[in-house]
Each structure stands twice: as C-alpha cells, then as structure tokens.
Design a protein around this nucleic acid. Structure first.
Length: 274
DNA sequence: GCCCAGGTATAAA
DNA sequence: TTTATACATGGG
C-alpha cells in the first residue's frame, strides 16, 4: 500500500482491492452515505471524510497525514492483504470459492465497538434501509454535531435516557435492548475494550449478558466492532447456510478468518435471494 | 395489502 | 434440548 498526501487529502494505491460500494454496502456498516458522484461520506470518532475512486487510486478527502496514521489506516484495515486472505479461503472448499468470487474489494472495517453493538442490536429482524434510518435518527437526536452530520452518541449519553425518549427513533422492541446495552457499557458491567484480547468464547458470553444480544449479534460485534476475524456465527442463520450448499465447509478449518469467510457467504446468499 | 427483514426472548413440546 | 411464536416498524 502506497500513500501520498496533498493538502489534507490522502491518495492510496493498494496492491489488493478496495471497492467502495462493496465495502460500505455489504451490510457491515450503516453510516456511510453514497453521493451522486459515487463518493462515500462518513463520520468516525470526531472526523468526517469523503472517499472517491480516481483511476486506480482511492482518494480520502479531509484527511491529514496525522489522521491517516491515527485513524484511517487502521479503520480501513489497510495493512491487511485481502488478496492473500481470499486466496487462502478459496482453497478451503469449492462452495467457499464461489462465495469469495461473488464479490471483490470488501475490506472489514475496524468500527467502534459501541457503535457496532448498537448497530447490530438494531439490525435484528430488520432490513438494511430501515436500520440506517433508525441509526441516523439516533445520531441526529443524541450525538454531537460533526462536519455535516453527527457523531455516534456515547454509551454514557444513552444510559441516562428512557424508552419514551427513544420513541422518536421508531426502533420498536429494540429500544429497550439499546438502553440495557448502554447501561451495562456505561457502568463497566460490560467492558468492550477487554473484548479485543479475551478468549473469543468469553467475549461471546460477555456480550450475550446484554438483553437482546444473542449469538448472531455477538458475532457481528466481535467481527465488525472488534475485528475478531475468527468470530463466526455458527448457530443462527449460518447453520442454515452450512447445512445447504456450504456443507463442505468446516468452520474450525477456516481458523483466523472464519468471520471474513462468513461475509462472503452472506453476500452470495443475499445476491441469490433477489 | 402482503411478505419479510444480517434475531432474540419466552413459552411450550 | 429442540421447535414455535411474538415482537414494532416500514421497505419493496
């Protein structure tokens, strides 16, 4: 990966892939917005940037060299060779090769664990456009202004709210889950930063103490919020996939990248559904 | 109108 | 331990 800087703009040349639409619209995140020119605009922590492809480069606008080193290099997982991971996964089974080949240029973002926790609580029994709407209203209603939008509200902020105060989100039965998550995170009863390094099964159990967090939400938080790429949702809808056309996949064999394999399988099953 | 959505808690078999 | 159902809401 090469990077050059020109007046608050980072210009990336990657040896592996970075497809903006596939990365931001694969269902791992809900707060990157496509603009008419094909660029994507998003807010992470207290920074707002805009990404656009120019020839074989990805351009990050409003990105200083300091921010790139402190935030974006890690957030976009730019030090990871996705080409190598794809090749490794493709060797594991014919069905997984089809899944990997069904989409390219996805990078697993290193999102904020708290934001990922809320996002995937809200995702349950819900569709992506509506999830995005609820999260937008959550940020507008309770987040600090940032750039042209809002930061994701802190757990401490939400912990002091009531279900009635969350009603404008129209999150339905999920509102009470958000409040329980906020309360447990704000109090330290669930310590998200500990989940970066704890044994994966302990992490699952810890997350599932939150009302409304089951195995599937826990796996998504671990993968997308804590970059635990070995996390794999074996026991909810993935069980369906693995008993069908993906029955030739052995999850333990996928090892450290089982979660990334899951992302490709998710895409293939989604694209077939329509 | 109808079906269903990146599921989970709860009750019942 | 496995299987069924309600859940709030609205996108397509």
């Amino acid at each position: 990966m090469e990077v050059k800087f020109k007046k608050n703009t980072a210009i990336l040349k990657l040896s592996d892939g970075f497809d903006l639409a596939n990365t931001f619209e694969c269902g791992q995140c809900f707060r990157w917005n496509r603009e008419p020119d094909g660029a994507y605009c998003g807010i992470v922590r207290d920074r707002e940037v805009r990404l656009i492809r120019q020839d074989d480069c990805i351009v990050i606008e409003n990105c200083t060299e300091e921010d790139f080193d402190a935030i974006w290099k890690s957030y976009f997982d730019l030090d990871t060779d996705y080409g190598a991971i794809r090749r490794m996964l493709s060797e594991k089974s014919p069905s997984l090769r089809r899944a990997v080949d069904s989409i390219d240029g996805i990078r697993i973002l290193r999102q904020d664990p708290w934001e990922a926790l809320c996002s995937f609580i809200l995702s349950q029994n819900n569709n992506i456009p509506r999830i995005r709407g609820i999260i937008t209203r959550l940020c507008e209603g309770f987040g600090e202004p940032c750039g042209n939008g809002y930061r994701f509200p802190a757990a401490d902020t939400l912990a002091g709210l009531t279900a009635e105060e969350l009603a404008p989100l129209r999150a339905g039965f999920r509102a009470k889950y958000i409040l329980d998550a906020a309360r447990k995170v704000a109090s330290g009863e669930v310590k998200l930063t500990a989940l970066y390094t704890a044994p994966i099964e302990d992490c699952r159990q810890q997350l599932m103490t939150i009302y409304g967090v089951g195995s599937k939400v826990a796996e998504c938080v671990l993968l997308y919020g804590l970059h635990r790429t070995e996390a794999f949702p074996v026991d909810v809808w993935m069980k369906k996939a693995l008993s069908g056309e993906f029955s030739d996949i052995s999850v333990p064999e996928l090892g450290a990248y089982a979660g990334i394999a899951q992302q490709y399988i998710f895409h293939l099953t989604r694209s077939k559904a329509r």
